[in-house]
Amino acid sequence: MSWRACMAMVAVSWLMGVITATTHSSLIFTLPFPSRPIIPHFLCDILPVLRLASAGKHRSEISVVTATVVFIMVPFSLIVASYARILGVILAMASTQSRRKVFSTCSSHLLVVCLFFGTASITYIRPRAGSSVTMNRILSLFYTVITPMLNPIIYTLRNKEVAGALRHMAKRQVSSP
């Protein structure tokens, strides 16, 4: 990839983040809130803040749905479509060993993608009816803390030396009293 293409992608990512954050913030600041709002959440995410507003949240809710579709559903759909094509190529390979190697390479990335996009989409697309504060906290914690924490572990386990050392350590734990 060229330096120019890389910088363009970074600039677009930052610009979209700034536009989205500015839009959400400006819409949130116009809403009426209780005098002492308490957000029953681990972090100040937009949905818990919107739930505290007493009126006029329609534009903000439309903004959240739009951002969810653009930044979560579209990329997730493109990733799933590309993996469907990759799966087609894998299944067309003649060698079983080649299929296993390519599938092993792709499966770790697909696992991380599904963990992140799955929990994020459930959080932002799920209807309000039937959603509990506890479930919202767990889902939020999952896509903001647990998935990024699992990321290096999932990718590291693909390394043969690390996997071997982990197996060796597990055998020592089992054999020792």
Results as ranks from 00 to 15, higher is better:
A67M: 12
I19K: 09
W3L: 14
T119I: 02
V162R: 10
K160E: 14
T156Q: 12
C114R: 08
W3A: 15
S107H: 06
T66R: 08
A21C: 11
L91I: 11
S176D: 11
V89L: 12
S26I: 06
M169E: 06
W14L: 08
E161L: 06
K57N: 03
L27G: 03
I19R: 11
V12Q: 12
I138G: 03
S140K: 02
V133Y: 01
L43T: 11
S77T: 15
R36L: 10
G88S: 04
A92K: 14
I38Y: 10
I90S: 03
H24C: 15
V133R: 00
Q173S: 10
K160S: 15
Y83R: 14
C114Y: 04
G17T: 04
K171Q: 08
F142L: 12
W14I: 13
V65Q: 01
V112A: 12
K171V: 07
S131F: 00
L43R: 09
P75K: 13
A94Y: 10
L141T: 09
T119E: 06
I90E: 02
A55Y: 02
I62G: 07
T96C: 13
S176C: 12
L166I: 11
W3N: 15
L110K: 04
A81T: 07
G88I: 02
C6L: 15
A5M: 12
I154Q: 11
A81D: 02
F33A: 07
I122G: 01
T30D: 12
A55V: 07
E161N: 10
I90W: 06
K171A: 11
I72G: 02
P127K: 00
L111A: 12
G88M: 01
V162I: 14
P34N: 08
L110W: 05
R51W: 00
R158M: 12
G130N: 00
S107Y: 05
M135E: 03
R51P: 01
F76G: 08
R167W: 07
L27H: 03
S175E: 15
L91N: 10
Y155M: 10
L141K: 04
G164W: 00
R137D: 06
V12D: 10
Q97Y: 10
L157R: 07
S26H: 07
C6N: 10
K171M: 08
R126D: 00
